[in-house]
Amino acid sequence: MEVVDPQQLGMFTEGELMSVGMDTFIHRIDSTEVIYQPRRKRAKLIGKYLMGDLLGEGSYGKVKEVLDSETLCRRAVKILKKKKLRRIPNGEANVKKEIQLLRRLRHKNVIQLVDVLYNEEKQKMYMVMEYCVCGMQEMLDSVPEKRFPVCQAHGYFCQLIDGLEYLHSQGIVHKDIKPGNLLLTTGGTLKISDLGVAEALHPFAADDTCRTSQGSPAFQPPEIANGLDTFSGFKVDIWSAGVTLYNITTGLYPFEGDNIYKLFENIGKGSYAIPGDCGPPLSDLLKGMLEYEPAKRFSIRQIRQHSWFRKKHPPAEAPVPIPPSPDTKDRWRSMTVVPYLEDLHGADEDEDLFDIEDDIIYTQDFTVPGQVPEEEASHNGQRRGLPKAVCMNGTEAAQLSTKSRAEGRAPNPARKACSASSKIRRLSACKQQ
């Protein structure tokens, strides 16, 4: 084909351009004929944790799935940006308080904090938690009735009371019990989460009196709706648990309003109706937990002794299953770290194939690490110290990083047969305790 000078094309009309061969290198194709290559998922490591896909996002930050490269346990990490926390009232204080509380709590029905990582340079905090497959609110939203069968609701409620009793025994008032803060594992274990607005009572406090509340409006008791200066913290949790039980068994809320002012007005009056299909035992329990006067409201001991709580409820309806993943529609909620794991395991070791967030990740503290002497050669063979940054567990980050890069360049065919977990650990520049 004859090559045409581009400067001469402006002298031709459209018809003349076609005659000189423009149609031979300008093609129009339908979008259905285009085959897009999927974007390669680059592996990203935060300390010893391999990052997966997004699980959810809230006002405080994002939650992603991660894999512990040492234990191969599935975890969830809450990623918090200090810049964003400053824009939220009491944001930083709530996060630090939640970390302090979770560090000393150990119960099967309370979410466990596994690790805390802090990135000084990017001003990011990573709260590594045990993995929960789904939230209770997500399960309720997945069915038209917006409720659980009585047998399933009873099982979840009993676990909620177990976890709540443990928190109260530790002198902690949750203040925000609701389905949105109750998570579930694949085995059906309920976990109380989000202790950001919780309050730890003084060890020598005479009672459970509280003065502040930041919980969700629909789950607040009349004493808070009416603006009382002080109130019983434990009875606030009992009320919120009662509203939660009402919601998961009926699909409704005892109090509603077009806006928060109308909602608080209705809560302050204390008038509500219980659907007739709840039955006398459940209705009596709800009335005891939603008692207007805090002094007359049920205690956890009274809830445990109630006939509806103690009764064994046979399954009359099919239980609400864990819904498919909202993004991938995966009904099994498979591990989202698998594509990243395959990338590390299947590809040659190259620095361009993975990302390490930083050479140094500070753990379990908000301060910069200490310094240790770096050896410097002298005339008599002895070495003197220069400062060298280290990880919180004493690992020399720069030395590990250099060693990792040197190993990656060394030709050794046997290394390709290593397991995925050992490869992740070798790529991680800074081991965590």
Rank of each mutant, 00 (worst) to 15 (best):
I79F: 01
K108H: 09
Y362P: 14
Q371F: 07
L290G: 00
D355H: 07
K416I: 13
P387C: 13
M18D: 01
E92V: 06
H313L: 12
V338G: 08
N380S: 05
I111M: 05
T185D: 02
F354Q: 15
D208W: 02
G15L: 12
S19L: 04
R409D: 07
V337T: 15
A93S: 05
R74T: 00
L263C: 07
E256D: 15
R86I: 09
V95Q: 12
M127S: 04
W308F: 06
D258G: 12
V372E: 09
L80Y: 07
P373H: 12
F366A: 04
L290M: 05
D208A: 08
P217F: 12
S271D: 15
L252W: 11
E138S: 09
N226S: 04
Y246F: 03
T212I: 07
R301G: 12
L341T: 09
R415L: 15
V3A: 12
F25C: 15
M22W: 03
I177A: 01
P149M: 06
N90V: 08
L201H: 08
P413M: 13
F219R: 01
P324V: 14
Q371W: 03
K83E: 12
H306Q: 02
T395H: 13
P387R: 12
H306W: 00
K78V: 00
E396M: 12
V4T: 06
A406K: 09
L17Q: 15
Y118S: 06
Q432D: 12
Q137K: 04
F219V: 04
D277L: 05
P217E: 02
S271L: 11
G381H: 14
V236L: 01
C210A: 10
A43S: 10
K64R: 11
N226I: 02
Y246L: 04
V368Q: 04
S232P: 05
L286F: 05
S421R: 12
E199G: 06
K312R: 14
H313M: 09
E120Y: 05
G180P: 04
K235H: 09
A93R: 14
T363N: 06
L167D: 00
D284F: 03
K108W: 04
K81R: 08
E121S: 08
A198L: 07
Q432Y: 15
E342I: 11
Y60V: 03
F231D: 14
Q364D: 04
T336P: 08
S31Q: 11
P89C: 09
G58V: 00
T244N: 01
A316Q: 13
F219Q: 14
K191F: 03
I356L: 08
P369Q: 11
Y272W: 06
V95Y: 13
K81H: 09
F204G: 10
V133T: 06
V20S: 12
E98L: 02
G233T: 15
G257S: 11
K423D: 07
A414D: 05
K122R: 15
T209F: 03
T395M: 06
E375P: 13
A414E: 13
S421C: 02
T395D: 14
E375F: 09
K108I: 11
H27V: 06
S404W: 11
E374F: 10
L167K: 00
Q371Y: 06
L183T: 07
E374K: 12
E130L: 01
L117R: 07
A43M: 14
D348G: 09
R310C: 06
P324A: 10
E375D: 14
E317H: 09
M127H: 15
E317C: 12
D162T: 11
H345R: 14
A153I: 01
P221D: 00
Q399E: 12
K403V: 03
V143D: 12
